[in-house]
Design a protein around this nucleic acid. Structure first.
Lengths: 175, 175
DNA sequence: TCTACCGTTGACGTGAACGTCAAGCAAGAA
DNA sequence: TTCTTGCTTGACGTTCACGTCAACGGTAGA
């Protein structure tokens, strides 16, 4: 019911690939609010598709993916939108490169673009490695703590199961 | 020069263990500002030591460690202070348990405390595992991207090194 | 005694990342 | 036709995590 708009006078005209979404649908797909999508657009982080449907923003698969990327980087890494912008820009550079290649741009300029992108990418990988190491260490600590707690719990369980020993004083705790 | 305060009328009276720090020193050690330490205290996240030195806050090793923990969780995991509070509370429970044990509290109550702490801890570990998996996946993506970029760069380098072939048209790009 | 430095509380300011509300338009349903 | 829903822009409000400034006090060194 209420299959949205989608049939007016352009039967299937403006659907270049996949599905074309309105802002509310895109937002729901990404798990954010429409305000958030507009804000990201406001700060130049995520532009909707080129052509608008009347006055409405149109989101295609590419934009939705990018939005999901943004959200993931936010939640997963705790990146600020400024940091995310940097990450995404190095992705964009690869896109630009394709364009430059098609536009028959000079190879040394392409090469320069690539070098920048590679440097940014390597920095990101280094940061990810660092994060992985530290999170892993932290995880191991908590796992060890879990083991200790489980041992202590078993100990307490034995005490609770055998309450007739006379409330502490029989066999003193193993620790 | 200027070895702090440390000698007035209590030669070594109020130094229970390790070093007793003033707020500025503690802040420097943790890599935060004094304002931050006061803010954390304000929201009940990190209290300085019990006794104050006159009107001044005193930070001992325990508090400094806790502060470093807080900062690590912030930067590493992108946790909010509210989330960090939860994590630290489960650590506090273990401390409470020791107190309860010494106070000769009923084992079933201790057991209940432990169960809560274990559940919270397990949740955290699960979250860490999830984070690890996703960051790892993300890292692998970026490493793959790095490889592709390096291949492309080598390709461009060959073109730049041999510019006489006639600006595109010789051997078409491998892709 | 004066100056410099470090601390105190209290209050107001700030940037990031949105939330919320108003006023208006367009399209489909009753 | 009217109602409802969803979109638009614009503007102001809000929360978090502090930054900054004022006014004051205590201690150390010159």
């Amino acid at each position: 019911m209420t299959a949205g708009r989608a049939a007016k006078d352009e039967p299937t005209a403006t659907a270049p690939s996949g599905s074309t979404l309105r802002i509310g649908e895109a937002a729901k797909l990404c798990g954010v609010t429409t305000r958030t999508l507009r804000y990201w657009e406001e700060i130049g982080l995520l532009a909707p598709s080129e052509q608008r449907h009347g006055s409405e923003r149109v989101y295609l698969g590419r934009e939705v993916e990018r939005a999901q990327r943004i959200k993931e980087l936010q939640e997963l890494m705790g990146f600020s939108l400024a940091e995310i912008r940097v990450v995404l820009e190095t992705e964009d550079i690869v896109g630009e490169l394709r364009t430059a290649y098609k536009a028959n741009a000079r190879p040394d300029l392409q090469r320069q673009l690539l070098a920048n992108a590679m440097e940014a990418n390597d920095k990101l990988v280094a940061r990810l490695d660092n994060t992985l190491a530290r999170v892993s260490e932290f995880r191991d600590e908590r796992v060890a703590k879990a083991r200790r707690m489980r041992r202590r719990a078993a100990e307490l369980d034995r005490q609770v199961a055998a309450p007739a020993v006379g409330k502490r004083g029989g066999a003193s705790a193993s620790r």
